[in-house]
Amino acid sequence: MNKKNVLIITPSLNPKDNISGISSVTRLLLEHNKGINYVPFLQGKKDAEHRGLKWLLKQIMTPFHLLKCLSKNSIDIAHFNIGFEPFSLIRDIIIYYLLIVKSYPVILHIHGGRFVKTKPTNKLLRYIIYYFLKYADEILVLSELEKSFLCNLYNVQQNNVYVLPNAVQPSNISFSDKPIDARFSILYLGRIDKNKGLSEILVSLSELKALGEDFEFNLCGVGNDRDWFVEECRKRIGDRLIDNGLVYGDEKLKILKCSHVFLLPSYFEGLPMAMLESMNNFVVPVVTSVGSIPEVIKSGENGFLVSSTADITDVLLKLIKDRALLGKLSVAAKETINRSYSLNSYLEKLNDLYMTLKK
């Protein structure tokens, strides 16, 4: 059987350039989904890229680059990744329109975003969302919760929406490799942006230091608020901060192996790949109940859901002092991934969906 040629819309695939969840998922597909011939089409801003004149010219040329890509490749399906955020919707509508008018079957893969749960007040954004949803052949979301929101807000038919939670490649480390009794290590992994709850992290870490607790804060990532956050961390917790910058590959795995808690009190999320990767390596998530996170985390069983700085501080103190509980939750986090978020199952479901579509 000939492989299907799937055009996949994604940000940069180089982890040095982009640490988004969409990029991580796409890299997994290209590396492991050998039954599909993927043709990546890069759309989106690199993490260190500024929205200046050069960037604007690139956006103007993007539709022409897409047309050239379509003419050079025999494409069967378009796999369109997007987050329902204002800028992404406006930026991506033109290339989406081109795929529709050229009659390519489109899988619209929605990776969270504020407008999955809340309808925008802006009429243009509402129109764009309705256009995306109306002309998609299939719609993928990250959880049953997101499916419910999408159907209720935008009158989408239930049978047009498929739930496909993000997945990760199984980790090779075992629980015996985990230094549970070592110095308590708190991990932040991902884009460094104030909407990720950076202010709340600063307050809680400051409180831990004031209480005399011994811990380290492993900061991994880049983003617009990185310089401010690093400076504030140094002011408040001093040498407890370990600033790793952008990490990937073996370096990231090494940090995951020695981390105890993954901390993400974010305001908006889909289903964070960094959280799943952390759980896959026996790291206990301490996260807010946003996006699809509540479908994964059962508070007190395989991690903790928090809603305030007081919650964060209380949970971190509990885990610092009770290493038996930390170990129990670490194992439960890993078991959650093994049971429900394995890559093999993910690929089977996605490929079944690919096979139902024809140009």
Rank of each mutant, 00 (worst) to 15 (best):
L211Q: 15
S206R: 00
S299R: 12
V315H: 05
N122I: 05
A332F: 06
G190P: 03
L256C: 07
V286P: 07
T10R: 08
I19Q: 11
R91P: 02
A182R: 11
F115D: 01
C220H: 05
K328V: 02
H32L: 04
G190C: 08
Y162A: 12
L198I: 00
F132L: 06
L164A: 12
I90P: 02
K58Y: 12
S148N: 15
R226K: 14
V230Y: 09
I90D: 05
L211A: 14
V331S: 09
G190T: 05
N18K: 09
Y354S: 08
N160H: 13
Q43M: 15
V315E: 08
L42P: 04
K102N: 04
L211C: 09
M355F: 11
N155I: 07
T121L: 08
P15D: 11
V101C: 00
V315Y: 10
L164Q: 12
F282Y: 14
K318S: 09
S292E: 11
A274N: 01
K16R: 15
V163K: 11
H65Q: 11
L124E: 11
L205P: 04
T121P: 00
K54L: 13
L256E: 10
T26I: 08
V230W: 10
V296W: 14
L70Y: 06
T10Y: 03
V283L: 09
E295N: 13
K54Y: 06
S266Y: 07
L329K: 08
S143C: 07
S299W: 10
S74P: 00
N155F: 10
I139E: 12
F229I: 00
K257P: 04
L70S: 04
N338H: 11
A333F: 06
N152K: 15
L140T: 10
K321V: 03
P272E: 11
L53Q: 02
K349M: 12
P40H: 12
Q158A: 14
I110W: 05
V296Y: 07
Y131I: 04
E138F: 10
S23I: 03
I337S: 09
E295P: 07
R91E: 04
S266L: 04
D214R: 05
E335Q: 14
L253C: 00
V163M: 11
P86L: 06
L70A: 10
Q169F: 14
V287E: 07
K254I: 00
R27M: 02
Q59A: 06
I9F: 14
S289M: 03
L66V: 07
D352T: 14
P285Y: 08
D314A: 12
I173M: 14
L347A: 10
L264P: 03
V6G: 05
D92R: 09
K4M: 11
I75V: 08
P272Q: 06
L42M: 14
I75N: 09
S342M: 09
G221M: 01
F80T: 09
Q59F: 03
F268Q: 15
N152E: 15
V156E: 11
I19A: 13
H50N: 15
L263W: 08
I180T: 01
V287Y: 07
A182Y: 06
G44V: 08
F41V: 06
S88C: 08
F64G: 02
K358L: 03
